[in-house]
Amino acid sequence: MLAVIERTVGKGEKEGNFRIFDLALQLCNSSFIRCDSSYEVAMANRLIAERRRFKKPLRLAPGDDTLPDFQLTDTSTPTAIEVYGMLGNAQYLARKTQKQAIYARAATPCVEWIPPAALESVRLPVAAP
């Protein structure tokens, strides 16, 4: 949560109190990592529970074609993690297919989770020594 607060002015018991002026909420996991869905929260919590090193990309870097939900950084080659949770959306499905082709062309390792399949069924690559 991000809140803009102000201190009240005036006389009496309300003077000097704080009042929320504006408020914004962001979905986060148990370690306050920003997530876009409850499925991403579950994946982030799993990665932390398994003590994996990873990052949550927030924007495309120059030259990037994809923005994975997470990226394992403890593997010999960085591994993308995609959580595909909006399967009823035609535009989303088209982008999913496009991302899969991009990962295949670049030989980028990618782990996919397609809920409602159990998160435990997702096999993560072993961390490099």
Rank of each mutant, 00 (worst) to 15 (best):
I33M: 05
F54T: 05
K96G: 10
T77W: 07
Y39V: 02
G16W: 07
L27F: 00
E112R: 13
T79R: 08
P62C: 04
E120P: 03
L119R: 03
I5C: 11
F54L: 10
D74L: 04
A94L: 08
A44R: 00
A107W: 01
T77G: 01
L60N: 06
N89K: 06
N89R: 12
R7W: 03
L25Q: 07
E13A: 14
G63H: 10
L2K: 08
A49V: 03
L47G: 05
N29H: 02
E15L: 09
Y103Q: 01
S38A: 09
K55D: 15
P116S: 13
K99M: 12
I33S: 05
I114N: 14
L60A: 07
A107N: 14
S76H: 13
D22Y: 05
G85Q: 06
I20C: 08
I20H: 00
T97G: 04
A117P: 05
S121L: 14
S37C: 03
T73L: 15
D69Q: 05
R53T: 15
D64A: 12
D22S: 09
V83T: 11
R19L: 10
L67K: 09
L93H: 02
F21I: 09
A118V: 04
D36H: 07
Q26D: 06
R59Q: 12
S30Y: 02
Q100H: 05
E50G: 06
I20D: 01
I48R: 14
A90D: 14
W113I: 03
T108K: 03
T97C: 07
V41C: 03
I81K: 01
Q91E: 13
N17S: 09
R95S: 12
A61C: 14
Y39M: 06
Q26P: 00
V9M: 08
N89W: 07
Y84E: 12
K11T: 10
L27G: 02
F32E: 06
V9D: 09
T73P: 04
I81S: 04
A128F: 13
P68W: 04
L119V: 04
L60M: 12
V83D: 01
V9L: 10
T66A: 15
L124V: 08
V83S: 08
